[in-house]
């Protein structure tokens, strides 16, 4: 297990480095002057020259890449051009919203989706299964922004249980901060839960046909004991992959829901940076996202290996 993790960590480091290089040089080799691009067509030559110096554009691309990389290691992502703030600080603020949002939505969708999928598989072909799968179909079909608006109408406008939008920093009022994330988490989690329920059901239905379930029954376990003790863990493998992909989406793909709830999340930061042509923020934000996705996939890999001893061992390979 430790050997497996060490091997993967090495892979993660290499992937990150390559990703950083691609992000940096892609933005750099685009035709045109980044400084002029950032300032717009009406900028004076003096302003452009000043910005070029500030961005270090008079140095070679390699030098700038290594300066940027060096900064990254020190946690220095540069100064935002549009907001005149350290990018590190900007990102940290936004992650305070996006990270709990993503984690919360993933946890909630797992708590809802997996049990529904398991119950549906246990009752395959019966009423419970049909109902669960119709619900899941509806859950997948409903656009999450529309669902988010319904939630606001019901729980913020009519019943006033949760705030309708906005966010106060955790340090100011942790309780209010948490409460303002509840509705967005629900809005994000439900469609994801519907997908998880379907994947879990399909996977478990397959596993229930497996010979080792029959062995477990012959041993004396009841059908539901056999499913819980032997089936669920085996069925979890494809579900883990989907959960990894979902988390990657939840980190940055939530801009519509962020807009509905006026949340200062990462998605909106990137959107506004692109609108303001703030290449410094765009570049760093993309790198942070890429790093998160790689990290999540690494965790999924570890989870896979934790669940399945065959993966820990790795497959034999011919060197010929």
């Amino acid at each position: 297990m430790i050997g497996f993790a060490a091997k993967r960590i090495f892979g993660v480091a290499v992937t990150l480095l390559v990703a950083a290089a691609i992000i940096f040089f892609l933005l750099d080799i685009l035709p045109g002057d980044p400084a002029r691009f950032m300032l717009g067509i009406n900028a004076t030559d003096d302003a452009v020259a000043a910005l070029r110096t500030e961005l270090g554009l008079d140095q070679s691309a390699f030098n700038r890449f290594f300066i940027w990389l060096f900064g990254l290691f020190q946690g220095d992502l540069g100064i935002s051009f549009s907001q005149r703030m350290p990018v590190t600080q900007l990102m940290a603020e936004r992650l305070q919203v996006s990270l709990p949002l993503a984690l919360g939505a993933l946890t909630l969708s797992t708590l809802i989706g997996l049990p529904i999928g398991i119950i549906a598989a246990q009752n395959r072909g019966k009423l419970g299964d049909t109902l669960a799968m119709i619900l899941a179909q509806v859950g997948i079909a409903i656009p999450n922004f529309w669902f988010a608006m319904l939630l606001v109408l019901a729980f913020a406008v009519t019943w006033r249980i949760f705030p309708p939008g906005g966010f106060v920093p955790w340090s100011d009022d942790p309780l209010l901060a948490a409460r303002s994330l509840v509705l967005p988490i629900i809005a994000l989690a439900l469609p994801q839960a519907a997908i998880l329920a379907r994947v879990m059901r399909t996977s478990l239905v397959d596993v229930m046909q497996a010979d080792f379930i029959r062995t477990a029954r012959a041993k004396g376990l009841t059908q539901s004991q056999a499913i819980w003790r032997h089936g669920v863990r085996n069925a979890l493998l494809p579900v883990l992959t989907i959960m990894g992909l979902q988390f990657a989406f939840l980190i940055a793909g939530t801009i519509i829901v962020e807009n509905v709830f006026y949340l200062p999340g990462l998605g909106r930061l990137i959107f506004s940076a692109i609108s303001a042509r703030d290449l410094i923020v765009v570049r760093s934000a993309i790198l942070v996202l890429v790093a998160m996705v790689i990290l999540v996939m690494f965790i999924v890999d570890l989870a896979y290996a934790f669940v399945d001893p065959r993966i820990r061992a790795g497959g034999g390979r011919s060197d010929g």
Partner: peptide, 16 residues
């Protein structure tokens, strides 16, 4: 009654 099955490759839980 105990039972042994045909396929030794699939008759045991691979994760246990």
């Amino acid at each position: 009654i105990g039972m042994v099955f045909q396929e030794p490759m699939t008759a045991l839980n691979p994760l246990m």
